[in-house]
């Protein structure tokens, strides 16, 4: 227990060609190469993926959830960004 803990990595998996990588969890590994190997063993034991990304967790920067309201509020009031805001005259089926 005296040794230094291996760094933490976040794992992203592309489940099949055509889809984007999605966060699946995290793991410990000494370097990126072993993080990919460990991710293969840990997160793709049943063919869940065709591609793996790993990112050291310390490199992820996130917004503060306490500030979520002011951060995301402006988009709430701009309902004109959605197609349902606009009136389409009768007689037009698809637009």
């Amino acid at each position: 227990m005296s040794t230094k803990e291996w760094p933490l990595w976040e794992v992203f998996i592309r489940s099949k060609q055509g889809l984007s990588h999605k966060h699946v969890g995290s793991l410990h590994a000494p370097d990126a190469e072993m993080a990919v190997n460990n991710a293969r063993d840990l997160y793709t034991r049943r063919s869940e993926g065709v591609s793996i990304w790993v990112v050291e967790s310390s490199q992820v920067f996130a917004n503060d959830p306490a500030d979520s309201d002011p951060l995301f509020e402006p988009s709430q009031s701009k309902i004109y960004r959605h197609p349902t805001f606009y009136e389409v005259p009768d007689g037009i089926e698809h637009m």
Binding site: L8, S26, R45
Partner: peptide
Amino acid sequence: AKVQDEAGHGQYLYSAMETLGETRDKSMA
């Protein structure tokens, strides 16, 4: 395969625990 799954399950759970600020080393100790 089953025993390997159990190892995996332990890993998923330790990761979930670490998101709460507890380290894996401390937990193992």
